[in-house]
Design a binder for these strands. Structure first.
Lengths: 303, 303
DNA sequence: TCATTAAATTGTCCTAGACAAAAGTGATGA
DNA sequence: TCATCACTTTTGTCTAGGACAATTTAATGA
């Protein structure tokens, strides 16, 4: 019984690893890896182990290393580099470590219960800034190192998702001001940052209209008009390339009417060097609270 | 004040419309549309109205028309074709029409309340089959026609998501059998079908482990092992190309150990002609209930 | 009318080359 | 020693034009 090797075509590798087809082809020429097999049509066929190796490479690239130093390294060498990322994250609050343990032992239900309890203990604001935000970073870094697997990270976001949605449901303010439209641009599929922002804004008494992820720009414009929102909030995770963040924000700003404010937040905007005309860039979640206060102040002035 | 036109590069158009870069370039040559401007580097720059026109074209293609008949048509002609899709969907239960009205008038909160009430009236099983499933189809078709905008569809799925998650939380069966891992493959980002499946399976007393969307195949294998699941359930929406569904299911089946069952469901698998060795293809949600019963029967046999 | 075969359609893959943005390097001066 | 500026390298993504299998449509014959 010959076990048929699992092989991916170039499109499959792009989906599985997040590395573009063009990059895969040009790496092959420049660094000599990956070197896929070819089918009878001379098309690339990547065996499983090369895909796995590409995933390790992707992690190192995402954590700041340059392709010339990592593409082409063998798996053991890659693992050495990955372990070097271990250092700074080890010490942290004991509570956070507890959550991480739950994630690694795959106790989804227990994790959810623990998160809910912490939320009630700390209150939403502290919960987001002292627990969820650092935990996200912790999980993200552990994932980079390969310490937490993708499926474990998926399980984690499911639970956070659940706890946050539940809480948000109890503090909605329909009809209140400001009216805020919340979504991400096409290409950005991480919903967690958006959810955290919604929780913060709902806490301030804002009326949040959540559109979910990946709304085309033109649709954002239409939705902003239909719901007569005062503000559009876009969330960017650090997974998305900086150039995409910049051009995306610019396009959105140009497409939206001037009277609608545009706020951009998330770890993806932290990487932006220069400010963008007519767009408010948010750092930590507390910026949102301040921005709402400022917006309300400006409204009173206008009258 | 010259209003700077919003222009997209080819990657931006791919993200916004879902049409691949290769297709965009080859359409330009074959059908004479789109004909983007060029920047100083001779790179394509698509003005807003061409992107909008491409979105209309994409809708028609998704509903079965062929490129030679629609790419290259002007907006008015496209709209004529879109209106021809109107016919069959108009008559439907009055309750469903009520939901659609709520969507179109952007009353998210009211929609959620109405859905929750219907869920309590009908019970989960009937709610899913008689309300949510047809409503999904109705919304999908209306979206195809341009009758419901993308942002309205996003708002709708947010509300359904919310109602279903809420309900599922109350009927979890941790520790029960069978243990089922639920996710979608990379490329499939629609979570609604997955959520409906989770609701159905939880109702049967199965222990569902929800991984969210887009889990790489290797990660699915690891998660299946870590959680010692009996079954892996993959969901495919109709938005995903058939070839991707087929190769995805095949790869997953080959990568998973034989003792783990693989079930594939959703409107995406309905388009598959031939069965796939070792994989159970699901039609309506009720198939899941039956499959669980069959699985339990087989377990008893084994002892 | 239905099945079978030939022709047209269509998305995705291929190679090979080019270039701007970003990152690294080194020299200069405070 | 450290910051600043100019120069070089790196790197992802774009370009063009060609090819082909898979699917659909059209044409043929029973």
């Amino acid at each position: 019984m010959t076990k048929a090797e699992v092989k991916f075509d170039i499109a499959g590798v792009e989906r599985e690893t997040g590395i573009g087809k063009d990059a895969l082809r040009v790496w092959e020429k420049r660094y000599g890896f990956p070197v896929p097999e070819r089918d009878e049509r001379e098309e690339r066929l990547y065996p499983q182990e090369q895909v796995e190796r590409l995933r390790l490479i992707k992690r190192l690239l995402d954590s700041g290393l340059r392709p010339v130093k990592v593409v082409g390294l063998e798996v053991p060498e890659l693992n050495v580099l990955l372990e070097q990322l271990q250092d700074d994250t080890t010490q942290h609050g004991a509570e956070l470590a507890g959550f991480v343990d739950l994630i690694k032992s795959h106790q989804g239900a227990a994790l959810r219960v623990a998160l809910s309890r912490t939320l009630l203990q700390q209150g939403m604001e502290e919960f987001l800034s002292k627990t969820i935000a650092p935990l996200n970073r912790l999980v993200g870094e552990a994932w980079m190192r390969g310490d937490i697997r993708v499926f474990e990270e998926h399980l984690y976001s499911e639970q956070v998702n659940h706890v946050l949605r539940n809480a948000i449901a109890t503090l909605r303010h329909p009809g209140d001001t400001p009216r805020i439209l919340m979504t991400t641009l096409p290409g950005e599929e991480h919903a967690l940052g958006l959810l955290m922002a919604e929780a913060t804004l709902s806490l301030c008494g804002a009326d949040c209209i959540m559109l979910g992820v990946q709304t085309p720009i033109q649709e954002i414009v239409l939705a902003a008009k239909a719901h007569q929102v005062d503000i559009v909030v876009l969330s960017f995770s650090s997974a998305i390339p900086v150039v995409q963040v910049k051009s995306g924000i610019r396009l959105a700003r140009e497409a939206l009417p001037k009277k609608v404010a545009l706020w951009a937040g998330g770890s993806g905007v932290a990487k932006l060097r220069s400010p963008i005309e007519g767009v408010q860039l948010m750092g930590p979640l507390s910026d949102l609270t301040e921005a709402v206060a400022a917006w309300r102040g400006a409204q009173i002035q206008k009258r």
